[in-house]
Design a protein around this nucleic acid. Structure first.
Length: 244
DNA sequence: TGCCATGTTAAACT
DNA sequence: GAGTTTAACATGGC
């Protein structure tokens, strides 16, 4: 599931529990789940791929990692790896195979909320400043960097670089200023396209590079290669994507 | 069937 | 210490 846009869909599903009181908390999360019982879920806040269930004093941070999933209402899967299940008067929320952590609300102050590419307060100028201070970083690593582009994952990385015709191993400092700006604006733009297509269940159909065999522009075979320090797979066209 | 992958963290290394 | 590599987690799709 879990790049930023998918998490936004999860938030929409959870929203009906905002303002509601936790009746029961179950699961194998490594903290005292009873601390949540009787507390009211004040707000659901996102930061990239992270979801914060905010209560008085404390919050639960959920990260679905690679294989995590969630379920609203419905029957709990019998032999599943349930990390946390919350019951409210109007339904239940289950979180499976994910990272779940209880944090004090002070922690929220340490987050740079403006780094979330899908946030209303996304700050592209700040992203540009961070990029400029890391000229030796490859663009594939820059996009995957959650402190710069919180919410971007491997799919978004590959599609953004295809859209702006930049080879993944290009160095940030070598990009001309207008390319750097395209990188920043498309990280956000594509995330919203991802959201729209995910909602329609047509995401894969719209992939131009990610896990594709041939370049949709020139028809040549795409390169599939582990790139950068993040060691994640990149799909790109040698002919159409320029190495800076 | 076996491999790979929408991700992160922490331990174990150099 | 800094930087890098590896393991762990654990599921579903191809």
């Amino acid at each position: 599931m879990p790049e930023g846009p998918s998490i936004l869909l999860m938030k929409e599903d959870l929203q009906k529990f905002a303002g509601k009181k936790v009746i029961l908390a179950v699961g194998n999360a490594k903290f005292d789940r009873d601390l949540l019982v009787g507390k009211t879920l004040k707000e659901i806040r996102l930061y990239g791929k992270q979801t914060y269930l905010i209560f008085d004093e404390i919050n639960v941070r959920i990260h679905l990692l690679m294989f995590g999933s969630y379920e609203i209402d419905g029957q709990m899967k019998p032999d599943s790896n349930l990390r946390l299940g919350l019951s409210f008067k109007n339904g239940k929320a289950f979180f499976y195979t994910c990272s779940v952590k209880l944090l004090p609300n002070d922690f929220l102050k340490s987050i740079d909320w403006e780094a979330d590419v899908m946030s209303d307060i996304w700050n592209p100028e700040k992203a540009e400043a961070k990029l400029r201070s890391n000229p030796e970083m490859m663009v594939c690593d820059a996009l995957m960097n959650q402190d710069i582009f919180s919410g971007v994952g491997n799919i978004i990385k590959n599609e953004v670089l295809f859209r702006i015709a930049v080879q993944p191993e290009s160095l940030v400092g070598d990009l001309p200023p207008e390319k750097l700006n395209e990188l920043i604006s498309e990280a956000r733009n594509y995330s919203f396209d991802f959201l729209k297509w995910k909602r329609e269940n047509t995401l894969k159909r719209h992939w131009k590079a990610h896990h594709q065999k041939n370049c949709p522009q020139c028809g040549k075979p795409l390169i599939s290669k582990i790139t950068g320090k993040s060691k994640r797979r990149s799909f790109y066209c040698e002919a159409d994507q320029k190495l800076y």
